[in-house]
Design a protein around this nucleic acid. Structure first.
Lengths: 213, 213
DNA sequence: ACCACCATCGGGGACACCCCTGGTCTTCGA
DNA sequence: TCGAAGACCAGGGGTGTCCCCGATGGTGGT
């Protein structure tokens, strides 16, 4: 197997040196970078197969590097390499487009394996972290935050809201709930006022962001 | 380590027997099920740690089992075990709440390991499949499938469509694109006709399902 | 008894949305 | 050179959406 090309991004020179030593001859380190600007430049000029990316990085964080190089390094995969195992770090980085996320407790051998797998198109996670992504994906995260706004609605208002958010017209909602259009309008007025929205379109977006459909 | 409890769900008795033989004494198979109804009953009465779940199952599919047992088997994890490596199967099952997805090409030893990891709270994937989930999560999937409908729109129609789907009114779109409201209406008429939709609300849902916002 | 809140319903109005018919101008390829 | 297609614009009409005003009951707390 030919050696994979890698760009190494971390704000601590000592850590970069450590990774480089651990990787040894298994991969070819094209360049190193210590902040977002350097990283973006290095990735675009080097076109590496894999970028080893620190999540907490001066200048916007690792996710910013992924966003700024989007489309400018077509075949480059990003592998997050972080001390953090916080869910928001993991999810944020994956959302940005990283193909893997491993913690710095990883051994050199495992890291080489992870790099090879990411380069091959697979996704690599420290086992415990994959669960975060799945939780977020299945929509079980943030469920708690809804109620602050949502529980100020009455039961009837919630019914109307749900149908409207799904795209039903007032008339259809009226037919569905066996009430008059005028009552639907009244409820919708309350819903929009309580949720501080101004149109059914905003309501649709509000509901879809909270996965209430 | 104590043996994990498992319910085995697959519509082929032959395959269930095979899995049972492969697992041997490593896990305790509480029950088997051949369709959705049997599976739901077995999971609720057995309260297993892990359910080995076939994706294509008479009565609604594996995802239906997960939905119907939601909340009734608190500590039970679901591990999909399928011949299919199609992205829609993987994503659909994970969305329903499965904590892992492996193909039936797996060896018995690997399957035991996967069961143990899922029981411990980790997520397990056949390497190639994890990418599907990440793609869907990052919103990069289906980008190819869109164009069949989307590329029938002209450039201007796409601009109008994007703004409308975001909740802009016709007037706001007109102001944004420096054209008259009447022109926006004309473009929207074309968009709705070409996409076979009938209202801006359906367009909003259409676009959000494809993550074009 | 009174008040607050909820669900229900109505009139009327301003505007948005969707469809229809028409038209001009440009670009592009047969 | 002539049509096809796209971007642009207009009028009119029917319906939907959102808001204002009002009203009637029921329920629950003080």
């Amino acid at each position: 197997m030919s050696r994979h090309t890698v760009v190494l991004v971390d704000d601590h020179a000592m850590f970069r040196a450590g990774v480089r030593a651990e990787l040894g001859d298994a991969v070819e380190v094209l360049a190193e970078a210590a902040d977002v600007d350097q990283a973006v430049a290095a990735v675009i000029s080097g076109q590496p197969e894999v970028v080893l990316l620190d999540v907490h990085l001066p200048g916007g964080g690792g996710a910013e590097v992924i966003r700024r190089t989007a489309g400018k390094a077509a075949d480059t995969k990003f592998l997050a390499l972080s001390v953090s195992d916080a869910a928001e770090d993991v999810i944020g980085t994956i959302r940005a487009g990283a193909r893997g996320y491993v913690t710095k407790t990883i051994t050199g051998e495992e890291l080489v394996d992870a790099i090879e797998r990411v380069a091959a198109g697979d996704a690599v996670f420290s086992p415990r972290l994959a669960g975060f992504v799945l939780d977020a994906f299945a929509g079980t995260i943030e469920v708690a935050a809804i109620d602050e706004d949502l529980d100020r609605l009455t039961e009837r208002e919630r019914e109307v809201m749900r149908l409207i958010a799904r795209g039903y017209s007032y008339k259809e909602v009226a037919g569905e709930l066996f009430i008059s259009i005028k009552t639907v309008e009244t409820h919708m007025g309350s819903v929009l006022r309580k949720l501080q929205l101004s149109s059914r379109h905003e309501l649709t977006r509000w509901a879809s962001e909270r996965r209430l459909l």
